[in-house]
């Protein structure tokens, strides 16, 4: 594990924490996109370029666009509600860094076996051949899930139009 990996992973945890703790939903979405972008860089470094491209285009791009559109279709809070929620949020979210630090310290103090044997390496294939030849059922599942999603969204909006 190099210094760059540690910096990237720390940045990922900081971005994730900021996503959870920030007050504004829009900033939270930007934090999520930032976390996703850092994960993309880590994936590139771990020799998984195809998954990294998917993560960048879909998770950083598409999902952020879906979140921003949803937020823009809802009304912003009034000033009174913001003040009330801010006080409440500090009380509720103050514990998260404490829990993270406690679990982190517990994990560091945990004595894991240093010579654990990893599974033997199998013959490595090209990602395309694995996806299309070995994991054909996954492709079928993806198509079913996509169709189910499209059908669900169509139903949701159709119902509203009728009313």
């Amino acid at each position: 594990m190099t210094l760059i990996d540690i910096i990237l992973l720390t940045a990922m945890v900081v971005a994730a924490s900021w996503t959870v703790m920030t007050r504004s939903l829009l900033k939270s979405t930007i934090g999520l996109a930032f976390t996703s972008a850092i994960i993309t860089i880590i994936m590139f470094r771990l020799k998984s370029p195809l998954a990294a491209v998917f993560e960048l285009s879909v998770c950083t791009g598409l999902i952020t666009a879906v979140f921003v559109s949803t937020i823009s279709l809802t009304k912003p809070l009034t000033h009174k509600e913001i003040i009330k929620l801010s006080k409440d949020r500090v009380k509720r979210f103050w514990y998260m860094p404490v829990i993270m630090l406690t679990v982190g310290a517990a994990l560091i103090s945990l004595k894991l076996p240093g010579d654990f044997k990893m599974p033997l390496k199998l013959a490595e294939g090209d990602v395309r051949s694995v996806l299309w030849n070995s994991r054909q059922l996954d492709i079928f599942g993806q198509i079913v899930v996509l169709l189910a999603g499209v059908f669900g969204i169509v139903l949701l909006f159709k119902e509203r139009n009728k009313r």
Partner: peptide, 9 residues
């Protein structure tokens, strides 16, 4: 990595 990438996709 190939199998992992296909699962991640």
């Amino acid at each position: 990595t190939a199998l992992a990438q296909s699962l991640v996709i």
